[in-house]
């Protein structure tokens, strides 16, 4: 194809998206669109899969059966969300094995929030309330994104996600209204998860390299800073309701703007964690790669069994 022809196709393609038409797997698409989507959808899928690890630790330590079934269901949802998203990503012409390979070798990223440790039961509450809360704010606009398989996966994810946040808030509420020690535990979890949750919404607009293009492709409907403000505005009153204190001395309602003003985010910490130097990066990858390698014999056995059954069927036909 000549350069002019490609340019022409790109113009038609951009116009389709501007008209709110969806792009489907077999449609022509610019190489950059394909690559950007593989990167974003796979990062999203990896985040769901790695996100199970910090919570898995607490399934056997949940304080009651009610909490245990809820946490189990939440972790199972996350496995499901990872699978929806990997499937959507595979429609762009990359195999599941390649995607896993990228995660396991560190070539692909996942949300840096999962590189923080979960040290008390209250962390299950804070993760559901804050981390899933921030995730929902990120994800809801993606239900209308331009790539059909991604948009459809996100509709399903968003429908299931709201229980995650509610169960987290309920854990916090119970602890905040419990003994002084329990309330202290809830406050401690908020102290540790607040700032990483704000960072989770991505670098500031000035630092974000992909924003303009992503807006055009509807991979993004609002900028990181807008999403962060929305998260803060809706979460601070919830913290007040819990009787907990958001760990930001500069946090203040601004009558003029109708938003909360907030303090400086430690972006050095964010980039350190992204680059692999967070408190739990190594452990997460070790656990993830370990699970994959230790499961290899099961995958091979299942395939060998399927092949054997298939051969028997063929023999019967001949006989």
């Amino acid at each position: 194809m000549s350069e002019n022809e490609v340019k022409n196709l790109e113009d038609i393609f951009e116009a389709r998206i501007a008209r709110d038409e969806k792009i489907e797997p077999k449609d022509w698409m610019p190489e950059k669109y394909r690559k950007t989507h593989i990167r974003q959808i796979s990062q999203h899928a990896h985040s769901e899969i790695v996100g199970m690890l910090p919570e898995g630790n607490w399934i056997s330590r949940a304080p009651s059966l009610r909490r245990k079934v809820a946490l189990l269901a939440k972790v199972q949802d996350e496995a499901g969300h990872g699978l929806y998203l990997y499937s959507a990503c595979e429609t762009l012409g990359i195999s599941r094995d390649e995607l896993y390979e990228q995660l396991h070798t560190g070539k692909a990223k996942y949300s840096s929030i999962f590189n923080y440790p979960t040290v008390t039961w209250a962390d299950m509450g804070a993760i559901g309330w804050l981390v899933d809360g921030a995730a929902i704010i990120n994800q809801v606009p993606l239900c209308n994104t331009s790539y059909g398989p991604y948009a459809r996966a996100m509709v399903r994810v968003c429908k299931e996600e709201s229980f995650h946040q509610r169960q987290g808030f309920e854990i916090m509420l119970k602890l905040a209204n419990g003994t002084p020690e329990q309330k202290e535990m809830a406050q401690d979890a908020l102290n540790r998860w607040w700032w990483p949750s704000l960072m989770m919404l991505g670098p500031t607009d000035a630092e974000s390299v992909h924003t303009a293009q992503s807006m055009k492709w509807k991979l993004k409907r609002k900028t990181n800073d807008e999403l962060r403000q929305q998260f803060i505005d809706q979460t601070v009153p919830q913290a007040d309701l819990l009787g907990l204190t958001v760990p930001d001395p500069d946090l203040k309602w601004n009558e003029k703007t109708g938003h909360y003003d907030f303090g400086e985010i430690d972006w050095d910490e964010f980039w350190q964690v992204v680059k692999g130097y967070g408190p739990s990066n190594k452990k997460r990858m070790k656990d993830r790669v370990g699970a994959w390698e230790e499961g290899a014999w099961v995958r091979d056995a299942a395939m060998a069994y399927a092949d054997k059954k298939e051969k028997r069927k063929d023999l019967k036909h001949v006989g």
């Binding site: 269901a73 199972q76 949802d77 499901g80 699978l83 929806y84 499937s87 595979e90 599941r96 459809r152 996966a153 399903r156 299931e160 995958r299 299942a302 395939m303 069994y305 399927a306 059954k309 298939e310």
Partner: peptide
């Protein structure tokens, strides 16, 4: 509803039940 990987049809059905009909 979507897609998934499985070794054979039986496993595909079982996985589909877990992945796509949890609710």
């Amino acid at each position: 509803f979507g897609s998934l990987h499985a070794a054979d049809a039986e496993m595909a059905l079982e996985n589909a039940r877990d992945v796509y009909t949890r609710r």
